[in-house]
Simulated scan of single mutants.
Amino acid sequence: MASIKQFQVTFDCAEPERVARFWCEVLGYVITPPKGFASWADFDRAQPPEDRGTWSACTDPSGVGPRLFFQRVPEGKVVKNRVHLDVRAGAGLAGEERLAALEAECARLVVLGAVRVGLLPADDENQVCIVMQDIEGNEFCLD
C-alpha cells in the first residue's frame, strides 16, 4: 500500500479570505487561487452570489509546507480545537534564547490580530511554548 505524501490543513471559519491572509503573514505563505483562475476574486465572480467568499487557500512558496484551505461555515467556534498548528519559532533554541525568540514572534503576531492565551513552562519532557489564538479564535502554539 502506498503512503500519502501530501496533505492540506482545512480551517472552518467565518471569513476565509481574512483568515487566509493572517496565516500568510504568520507563515510566509502566499494566497493561491483555484486552478484555472488568476485570483480568488475571479473565481468568486464565476460562482453564484451565495457562494462568493466561501473559500480561500494559501501555500508555502517553497513547496515544503502543506496547503492551508479555509472554508466558510455558518457556526462559530465553540470549543477547543482537536487539532492545532505548532508554529516552530524556537526550533533549535533552548532556555532564555528560546523564550526571547518566542516572545518576539508572539509580539509580531499580536500586531496581526492574534491573541496570546498563555505560556506553557518547560518541564522534564517539553520546552517552553506560547499558546495563542488566530483572528477567529483557533488555537495554535509557538514552540
Rank of each mutant, 00 (worst) to 15 (best):
residue 1 M to Q: 11
residue 4 I to E: 08
residue 5 K to R: 10
residue 5 K to E: 10
residue 6 Q to E: 13
residue 13 C to L: 05
residue 17 E to W: 05
residue 19 V to L: 08
residue 25 E to L: 11
residue 26 V to Y: 01
residue 27 L to D: 04
residue 28 G to I: 05
residue 31 I to T: 10
residue 35 K to T: 11
residue 35 K to M: 10
residue 39 S to C: 09
residue 40 W to P: 00
residue 44 D to I: 07
residue 45 R to E: 15
residue 48 P to N: 15
residue 49 P to S: 11
residue 50 E to D: 15
residue 51 D to E: 12
residue 54 T to W: 14
residue 57 A to E: 07
residue 57 A to V: 10
residue 59 T to H: 10
residue 60 D to V: 04
residue 65 G to Q: 09
residue 67 R to G: 07
residue 68 L to Y: 01
residue 69 F to N: 05
residue 70 F to L: 06
residue 70 F to Y: 10
residue 71 Q to V: 08
residue 74 P to A: 15
residue 75 E to N: 13
residue 77 K to R: 11
residue 86 D to W: 02
residue 89 A to G: 05
residue 92 G to M: 05
residue 95 G to V: 06
residue 97 E to H: 07
residue 100 A to F: 04
residue 102 L to Y: 01
residue 104 A to C: 10
residue 107 A to G: 08
residue 110 V to I: 14
residue 111 V to C: 09
residue 111 V to R: 13
residue 112 L to T: 03
residue 113 G to K: 00
residue 115 V to T: 14
residue 117 V to M: 07
residue 117 V to D: 09
residue 118 G to P: 03
residue 119 L to N: 06
residue 120 L to P: 00
residue 121 P to F: 00
residue 124 D to F: 00
residue 127 Q to Y: 02
residue 129 C to E: 04
residue 129 C to P: 00
residue 129 C to A: 14
residue 129 C to L: 13
residue 129 C to Y: 03
residue 130 I to P: 00
residue 132 M to K: 06
residue 132 M to A: 09
residue 133 Q to N: 14
residue 138 N to V: 05
residue 138 N to S: 08
residue 139 E to V: 11
residue 142 L to H: 05
